[in-house]
Design a protein around this nucleic acid. Structure first.
Length: 263
DNA sequence: AATATTGTTCAGCA
DNA sequence: GTGCTGAACAATAT
């Protein structure tokens, strides 16, 4: 479920491990992860490069190289990173492995191969081409921007939050989480929300991201009142004691509390 | 053995 | 154009 907080945790992990390291070469056990290039071409373009800086936009991670080319990673539904030294520590489902000059390796792991790695010319162009909305965790994303973006939207608040063209980075799990703490029924139409409710969504969104990133998105570190620990029909709500309900909506499961998120 | 899961993209429809 | 729905993609868990 790599959404904005997960990718931010990956970015920080990358910074602690592979940043500023030089690449000896790259192994590509699975070419399908690479977008628009062969493993040969990828290996040639990566060899000898040093990872210079990282940026995140929504669920996308961008890594600057020495050359005027940027490495792009998208984690799909099951992607993750693993830094290790010994061969027997190599994780299963390693799809691309960066061999670093300090003897360590960074593996891009993805059991269900829906992740993507690409080399792109320009990050801003990429964001524009994919029509990604602003990153809601960025410091210059303010309440007035959020208000502006949500005005005129007629769909449900949950679908709108998850729309990458509106806001980049929120998926199924975190949209539920944000609305749970905002005490709003997920399928309320955006134009039926009061300004106060909308403000609450904005504030809870930042708060949820902060908490999740602080917890390094590890289950045992999350605050006890997080809904994502209770994604099961019939669980007890940690906020009000009500019942957690599961509802299907266009193929995706939504969880919410029947009592404090009623409509 | 059938179903759910997850993000993105795309097709079809109102 | 906007919003909604479902399918496809891959592989694993229950």
């Amino acid at each position: 479920m790599p959404e904005l907080p997960d990718v931010e945790v990956f970015r920080r992990y990358f910074n602690r491990t592979a940043l500023n390291k030089k690449m000896v070469d790259v192994d590509v056990p699975n070419e399908e992860i690479l977008e628009n290039m062969s493993s040969r071409s990828f290996q040639m373009r990566m060899k000898g490069e040093t990872f210079q800086a990282t940026h995140r936009h929504g669920k996308y991670l961008f890594i600057e190289l020495d050359r005027e080319e940027t490495l792009m990673m998208h984690f799909g539904m099951t992607g993750s990173l693993k830094y290790y030294k010994k061969e027997d520590e190599k994780p299963e489902h390693s799809r691309v492995i960066f061999n670093l000059s300090n003897g360590y390796k960074l593996s891009f792991v993805c059991p269900r191969k829906l992740a993507k790695i690409a080399l792109i010319e320009d990050e801003a162009d990429f964001i524009e081409k994919h029509e990604l909305g602003p990153d809601p965790y960025s410091d210059d994303f303010k309440w007035k921007d959020f208000k502006e973006i949500m005005s005129g939207k007629r769909g449900s608040i949950k679908t709108t939050l998850m729309d990458q063209k509106v806001l980049a980075g929120i998926g199924n799990v975190y949209s539920d989480e944000i609305l749970y703490h905002s005490k709003i029924y997920p399928f309320t139409k955006v134009d039926e929300l009061s300004e106060k409710e909308l403000k609450s969504v904005f504030e809870k969104m930042r708060w949820v991201f902060d908490k999740a990133i602080e917890a390094k998105v590890e289950e045992e570190n999350f605050p006890e009142n997080f809904l994502l620990l209770k994604r099961k029909d019939g669980e007890k709500c940690a906020l009000c004691g009500g019942k957690i309900k599961k509802e299907k909506y266009s193929g995706r499961s939504s969880y919410f509390c029947e009592s404090h998120q009623s409509k």
